[in-house]
Amino acid sequence: MIIDTHLHLIDQSALRYPWLVGVPALNRDFSYEEYAADARRSGIEGVLHMEVDVDPADIAAETAYVKSLAGRAGSLLRGAIASCRPEEAGFETYLETVKAEPFVKGFRRVLHVVPDDVSEGALFRQNIKRLAGTGLTFDLVVLPHQIPKAVALADLAPDVQFVLDHCGVPDIKGNAEHPWREHMEAIAKRPNVTAKISGVVAYADPATWTVDTLRPYVEHTIRSFGWDRVIWGSDWPVCTLGGGLTTWIAATHALLAGTSESERARLLSGNARRLWRLN
């Protein structure tokens, strides 16, 4: 069975998503019901919602919206990774609010859409350090050339658990492995970073990719981090750009062929359960 650690839901009647204007293929509603139908058929038994970079004014509303869906009978939703703005003075107060809400399991601030110096600011770094001891994780989504910025954050806050999204966002369509490969080896040396096997089908050529196209990137990530520090995510609906949820799950199983039952169980569910203390 699978724990999906990276689901995006889009409901434009409830929340605002300014960035969708620039991504026509995703500029529609993607509902929990649409996701859950395929997820249940594919062996997903629990899921964490990943923030969708909503309008900053809607950050708290997004968490409340997802929590309401989780309250429905039989819901797969087990928690949320919430949006945040560590570069802003209000983060400390926001953190105190989130600490009182067990449904929130961590934070993410999308860093590849802002200037590199955002994560280098003194306030940003001070606020990241505040996560130590809270049990809240911080997801890092950066481009390959920005992975050293993620390394710096991991070194700055060794008591904070970080999650590197999407295998470090390699340029698979461009068949580019460098400097991504070296940077992945470097960040994997930080014991407080876990890698998320997700997103890669969206970075490959949607018309031509095969399992072997993805294999060098997925296997290098797993080899670098080890089986105890990798988790799985669908990145739905972004994965629809490369074939969809069931296609990505089928590719995952093909990529894991020949591995042990224990290794598969850790990547697909066990590590996520331990990391976020999920049932």
Rank of each mutant, 00 (worst) to 15 (best):
I59L: 13
S42V: 03
D116C: 01
N271P: 12
T63C: 11
D171V: 00
R274F: 01
V113L: 10
W209F: 07
A100K: 13
A204Y: 10
P102H: 03
G43D: 08
S75N: 06
A82H: 08
Y217P: 03
A14Q: 15
Y203C: 11
G43Y: 04
L153K: 08
R78G: 07
A37I: 11
H183Y: 14
Y65G: 05
F124W: 13
I147V: 15
L15K: 12
P144D: 08
D159Q: 14
V114N: 00
R85Y: 08
A202I: 10
R16G: 05
I3R: 08
E45I: 15
I172R: 00
F138V: 07
I59R: 13
G168F: 06
L245Q: 10
Q146R: 14
I172F: 08
D212A: 11
N127Y: 10
E219S: 12
I44D: 03
V47Q: 04
R72P: 02
M184G: 05
M1T: 13
L156C: 07
T5C: 15
R78L: 15
H112N: 04
E177A: 09
G243P: 00
R264C: 11
L241P: 00
R28H: 14
V104S: 10
R274W: 01
N279E: 15
S198K: 12
A70K: 09
T210P: 00
G43I: 03
L9I: 15
A257W: 00
P237R: 07
I147F: 10
P158I: 09
F30T: 07
A25I: 01
Y65S: 06
L76E: 11
P144Y: 10
W276R: 07
E263F: 03
V98A: 00
T246V: 11
N192A: 08
H166I: 12
L275Q: 11
G243L: 01
P170W: 05
P179G: 08
H166Q: 09
L164P: 07
A251L: 05
L143S: 13
A37V: 14
Y32D: 05
D116Q: 10
G74H: 10
